[in-house]
Design a protein around this nucleic acid. Structure first.
Length: 861
RNA sequence: GCCUGGGUGGCGGAACUGGUAGACGCAAGGGACUUAAAAUCCCUCGGUCCUUGAGGCUGUGCGGGUUCGAUUCCCGCCCCAGGCACCA
């Protein structure tokens, strides 16, 4: 009786059965060890892409594996549902963002279910629902109360296309991270989250997250950017006030010959006011204001400045230092002012050369002597101090502390630290986001909406035109309110929050099932589930999302909502999915269907096979998951993603590779169904009777495979090698002579192997394995079956191969019993025919024996 | 410029703390089955040399070093990818 492997039939059948039996629904069970597995939730763009398939397959394998290992597994899914694309759809197609979002969610949910992912859909959340964002608004009120949310007027990064503010983190090389327009600047009153209040803890814990990839932690540390240095005071030459600077190079203070102030700094206008230079200074400031971020951060941006006709005094030497406004000094780092040491800082050097300012060498390199007249660039390495008063002759690194202490004693400086990390600006002039629950009252200022009035619900009937400014501000009725403090007419805040706020705490919401509306954040449940044991997602979130989520966790801990310091115990950042591109000189990038025999079907020109790039619509190198499922089934899509490369690496898509994965599943299906009639009523071998020959070898291989697959999944999530081990096991089943129907011993060994194959593959390809399991007469759902265990004795080899080397080169191999005596092995090695030939007539120098591995015979002459 | 990763067959990738380089899969070639094709099954498959063997040499980006032995450790360099970037 032959059964054909028909993926779509069996996949839909099992998906339906899992849903009916609510196999993946989970509740807190204090008697079971919990495991919280989370994949980064998607933005509901409308369709899942291969990147999702890969991410969620990796997660699903771990979830299913942990379930089989007996853990109480929380594996939820939801939607990061606020954001710009919904609003753009509204502007372009007149569809309401809510309708658009929910339609997309429905479709993507269908696709995820069709992949067979084992989610507890009972915990599904969409961040655009008031039941979700009311918590966010509540946290916001608490943050205002604690001073962790504050309003401040500042220049902000402004994307002219999205017409909204962007956080520093959302500006990439001067371009908007979303639409790649050039980012400009704008002066606005904005809400900020005081992430800097947690900067030390965020940095500290970077060294206490052993389950995170090193590079992610390095990126976060760099982003936080802690530098140790000094704040130094430079008195004005006219005795009126002083200028403070931050420096990490106080060792070069004796070489500071001029002072630089950021062009945007208010001090620039103040110092030049009423002076002859005032006009020139204003022109300079105007000019810089017009320059966009991209230009200012460009490599070729020329350093420029203007003299403010004022001097300050070097606190160490008393030297008179001219003060300049400069275009390359950052206004929002340190104090916005820097002491310039042209001999030992390349930027200052260029500036000094351009404006003919004095140079003094204060560090001499160990191997040569610097001369200010011949220097072509600044010397920034280590050396010995010169021209530095009492510090002459000291190594500059040692002088860092000594000079800091000296200036501190003079009352001119103090040791301090600076961070690159800024507070997080979260106001967005958009509609489709969480309303900020604050009231603006003329008399009382900004007043919080009372907790009892939450949530501030986003009104539905808002007109979206795509024109500038906040849509909520133009919506009649929304903003009009009365001040909760004085009762007078007032206005609600009409900006909404950055969508990164929703994703900063969604993992907490998952800890309570959806029907637990009140209280949606239950401390007992949070204590049971948090932290997330394994978080999986794209490397592109290495800084932004992961840093914000860490900040929120610490803050919510301090609010008493949570009991953990860090949200994610282990982090896996999976690589991108890439595919080759094809490009016609005339028609640009082409879909594979538009290419025939290497030529463009439109114009017949030869098509260039481009390099492999991240799949994207514009490069036309995408693969549609729905197509894959239709053509091969979800199991093939899953196993290909797992087999093609280890999860943290980029995956190069290969259509032939997909065929190969399908072939492996068919091959597995065939060998099991071929044996079905013979082994259905035979119990799996469980030891007892002694085995010999092929059967003994097969059983050994089976137990070795269980050991290897378990280790590969458990220790490093290397599913590719786990799969190849199972492939080997399946391959070893093929050449086995078919036992007679009454050879129950042989059949029971085969059944043991077959059951091992099925259970080892169960987390990876859940549908085909469920089907095969039930065909074997097993009635329980495979999802509830225990992960197979192995017997070390059975897995151990009785005969091992010893490599024999001569002078480190492999010359022969011998097979010996695994427990063979070392002396005997060495004697056998010397007696080996090929070895004898190699060492004939040579002097034996020494002999190295590595037990169980090799013998190396070293000969001379 | 600084900080991370990473360079292994025609390709994706194995080789876990220094000990058989190339597991597994793809592609390619050969064979079996078939009227034929597809599917399936079996075999070969880093390079090179010859005397075709249970052969020799060579081979993990390049150049050195440590070691009985290096894809693995150390030093110097080249290339690729990612992050940060006038952060004083």
């Amino acid at each position: 009786m032959e059964r054909k492997y028909n993926p779509s039939e069996i996949e839909e059948k099992w998906q339906k059965r899992w849903e009916e039996k609510q196999v993946f629904r989970v509740t807190e069970d204090p008697n079971k060890k919990k495991y919280y597995l989370l994949e980064m939730f998607p933005y509901p763009s409308g369709r899942i892409h291969i990147g999702h398939v890969r991410n969620y397959t990796i997660g699903d394998v771990v979830a299913r594996y942990k379930r089989m290992k007996g853990f109480n597994v929380l594996h939820p899914m939801g939607w990061d549902a606020f954001g710009m694309p919904a609003e753009n759809a509204a502007i372009e197609h007149g569809i309401h963002p809510s309708t658009w979002t929910h339609e997309n969610i429905d479709n993507m949910k269908r696709q995820l279910k069709r992949m067979g992912f084992s989610y507890d859909w009972d915990r599904e959340i969409a961040t655009c629902e008031p039941e979700y964002y009311r918590w966010e608004q509540l946290f916001f009120l608490w943050m205002v109360e604690k001073g962790l949310a504050y309003k401040k007027s500042s220049t902000v990064n402004w994307c002219p296309k999205c017409e909204t503010v962007l956080a520093n983190e959302q500006v990439e090389a001067g371009l908007c991270w979303r639409c790649e327009s050039e980012v400009g600047e704008k002066y606005l009153s904005q809400w900020f989250f005081k992430i800097t209040a947690y900067v030390e803890e965020l940095l500290d814990y970077c060294d206490r997250l052993p389950g995170w990839p090193e590079r992610v932690l390095t990126m976060q540390k760099n982003w936080i950017g802690k530098s140790y240095g000094c704040e130094l005071s430079f008195p004005m030459a006219d005795g009126k006030g002083e200028i403070k600077v931050f420096t990490t190079r106080q060792d070069t203070i004796y070489g500071a010959t001029f002072m630089l102030i950021a062009a945007e700094h208010p001090l620039v206008l103040e110092l030049s006011r009423g002076k002859e230079c005032e006009g020139t200074v204003r022109d300079f400031m105007e000019k810089i204001k017009k320059q966009d971020k991209k230009m200012r951060t460009s490599e070729y941006y020329e350093k420029e400045g203007v003299f403010l006709d004022t001097y300050c005094l070097n606190p160490a030497t008393g030297r008179k230092m001219p003060i300049y406004a400069a275009n390359f000094v950052l206004a929002d780092y340190g104090t916005g002012c820097v002491m310039a040491v042209p001999t030992h800082d390349q930027r200052d050097f260029e500036f000094a050369k351009k404006y003919d300012l004095p140079l003094i060498v204060v560090i001499q390199p160990p191997d040569r002597t610097l001369n200010v007249r011949t220097m072509a660039e600044a010397y920034t390495e280590e050396g010995v101090l010169v021209n530095s008063g009492p510090f002459d002759g000291m190594e500059n690194l040692k002088a860092l502390d000594a000079i800091a202490d000296h200036l501190e004693k003079l009352g001119r400086g103090k040791k301090t630290v600076q961070y690159r990390l800024r507070d997080w600006g979260i106001s967005r002039q958009r509609y489709w986001g969480t309303p900020i629950p604050m009231v603006l009252c003329e008399a009382c200022g900004t007043v919080p909406v009372p907790e009892s009035d939450l949530p501030v619900v986003l009104p539905r009937e808002v007109e979206l035109t795509g024109e500038g400014g906040s849509p909520l501000a133009r919506f009649p009725g929304f903003a009009e309110t009365i001040c909760p403090r004085c009762g007078q007419p007032a206005r609600l805040e009409t900006d909404t929050m950055d969508t990164f706020v929703e994703s900063s705490w969604y993992f907490d919401r998952f800890c309570s099932a959806r029907h637990d509306v009140s209280p949606g954040l239950d401390r007992a449940k949070l204590d049971y589930w948090m932290p997330v044991d394994q978080y999986i997602g794209g490397i592109e979130h290495a800084i932004l999302h992961l840093l914000y989520a860490r900040f929120y966790t610490k803050m919510l801990r301090d609010f008493g909502v949570l009991g953990v310091d860090e949200p994610f115990k282990n982090l896996l950042t999976q690589g991108m999915v890439c595919k080759e591109t094809m490009r016609c000189p005339e028609h640009g990038y082409l879909f594979p269907d538009d290419v025939q025999d290497g030529k463009c079907t439109q114009c017949g020109r030869a098509v260039a096979i481009g390099k492999t790039e991240k799949m994207s619509k514009s490069l036309k190198n995408v693969v549609d998951p729905d197509y894959l499922i239709r053509a091969y089934g979800a199991d093939t899509a899953r196993i290909f993603c797992l087999f093609a490369s280890p999860p943290e690496k980029d995956l190069e898509w290969s259509d032939q590779g997909v065929d190969g994965s399908f072939r492996f599943l068919s091959r597995t299906w065939r060998i099991v169904t071929d044996y079905l009639d013979l082994i259905r009523d035979v119990p799996p071998f469980a030891g007892g009777e002694p085995l010999e020959g092929d059967l003994k070898a097969l059983r050994r291989k089976t137990h070795q495979t269980i050991r290897k697959v378990t280790a590969d999944i458990e220790e490093r999530f290397h599913f590719n090698t786990a799969i190849s081990a199972v492939m080997e096991l399946v391959n070893s089943l093929y050449p086995l002579p078919r036992p007679a129907a009454d050879d129950r011993l042989a059949l029971s060994v085969i059944r043991e192997t077959v059951e091992a194959v099925i259970r080892l593959l169960a987390p990876l390809v859940p549908h085909i394995t469920e089907e095969l399991w039930s065909l074997l007469g097993r009635s329980e759902t495979l999802a509830d079956v225990a992960w197979p265990s192995f017997d070390t004795t059975v897995a151990s080899e009785e005969e091992i191969t010893i490599v024999i080397q001569v002078n480190g080169k492999v010359r022969s191999r011998i097979n010996v019993p695994a427990d063979e005596d070392g002396e005997k092995i060495q004697a056998l090695a010397l007696a080996d025919e090929k070895i004898a030939r190699q060492i004939a007539g040579k002097r034996l120098v020494k002999q190295i024996y590595v037990p169980g591995k090799l013998v190396n015979i070293v000969v001379g002459g």
